[in-house]
């Protein structure tokens, strides 16, 4: 045990990494908000480039830098903490949550910002990172040694796979929640357009199915989101149309119902905090989630299209699910080896 290293690791976690991620969150959200609300790019199509003038571009650059530096600081925190306790830093809830947070940022930067050119989703991924790190602080514990009963190769495999998958599931949780908001707004908007119908995402044309195989096609949005707006020549109309578009999108979702629903939904899990730590912790968790949902509501008009969010959520889950399955299996193998039980 080395107290100086322990101190250093704490500083790297908070304020350094947490502060940088907060800056990055705000920067990304700002960049998204000042970006011109064009007709959203279609499923996995080309990048929605930041054409929102120089302030948006600057904000994006600052946010990216902050996110990269924060990720480095968080990785350094993990290494230093591991040195302080002389073991792999995968021993308790605090350490799991830290690595989950790092997974979210790195996956966001590498896959969604740099490979798929979707910087718009980064604001909410960083928000998820900050909240995960906040949750980690709730279960903070000093670096310490591990029971020898816990240290086997299978344990390392099991825990790192679980934590990695959990981080990716958090990413898909962010996409899926945003999808629900955006989809609601798009349906509302489409229903209010001339000739529009309800239903943003639905089954694809089954016109050629002839084999009686009961496959259920994945949902997709066939008419490329708001192509009807295209016909109205969006390009010609300026800010007022945008403002009108934004307010109509937000009007599709009742914020009070969203807040109440988020509160109830979060409570379904967070009641455990009330039992173990009292009402303060319960309320801080639920209220934070409600606040996050309202932020997401305000940003609905700037989000990528529902079909894009759907595809990104699917991708993330499809990647994480086999890893998680493998992790569960390796956990059973570990338990069988260590205790002669499967869990």
């Amino acid at each position: 045990m080395n107290p100086e290293l322990a101190d250093l690791s704490r500083t790297l976690f908070s304020p350094v990494a947490l502060g940088l991620f907060l800056v990055a969150t705000l920067g990304y959200l700002y960049a998204m908000a000042v970006t011109k609300v064009a007709v959203p790019a279609t499923d996995g199509g080309e990048a929605a480039d930041v054409s929102g003038g120089s302030s948006g571009r600057t904000a994006l650059r600052i946010a990216t830098a902050a996110a990269v530096l924060g990720a480095i600081a968080l990785a350094a925190h993990i290494v230093v903490r591991g040195m302080a306790s002389g073991r792999m830093p995968l021993g308790n809830m605090f350490e799991f949550s830290t690595i989950m947070a790092l997974t979210i940022v790195v996956a966001g930067l590498v896959v969604f910002q740099w490979r798929l050119h979707r910087p718009e989703v980064m604001g909410f991924l960083l928000l998820g990172t900050v909240l995960t790190m906040g949750a980690a602080l709730l279960v903070y514990s000093e670096p310490g040694p591990l029971m020898p009963i816990l240290s086997t190769a299978w344990r390392a495999i099991h825990v790192s796979a679980i934590v990695f998958a959990a981080g990716l599931f958090t990413v898909s949780f962010v996409f899926a929640s945003l999808y629900l908001l955006r989809d609601t707004a798009e349906r509302h908007l489409r229903a209010s357009l001339p000739g529009g119908s309800v239903g943003a995402a639905r089954a694809v044309d089954l016109g050629d199915v002839d084999d009686g195989l009961g496959t259920v096609p994945q949902r997709q949005s066939p008419d490329d989101d708001l192509s009807a707006l295209d016909g109205q020549d969006m390009d010609g109309l300026e800010d007022e149309v945008n403002a009108d578009y934004r307010s109509r999108m937000r009007a599709a979702i009742n914020p009070y119902r969203l807040a109440a629903g988020t509160f109830v939904g979060t409570s379904a899990v967070a009641w455990v905090f009330w039992v173990t730590d009292g009402p303060t912790r319960f309320l801080s968790v639920t209220v934070t989630m409600v606040a996050a949902s309202l932020v997401a509501w305000w940003f609905v008009p700037y989000l990528p299209s529902a079909s894009t969010l759907d595809a990104m959520a699917y991708r993330t889950i499809a990647f994480a699910f086999p890893i998680w399955t493998f992790a569960v299996i390796s956990g059973a193998i570990w338990a069988e080896q260590s205790w002669g039980r499967y869990w």
């Binding site: 499923d43 996995g44 694809v204 044309d205 050629d208 096609p217 994945q218 997709q220 894009t308 991708r315």
Partner: peptide, 8 residues
């Protein structure tokens, strides 16, 4: 035309 994974 695809039955699943329109983006891919």
């Amino acid at each position: 035309r695809t039955f699943q994974r329109a983006d891919a």
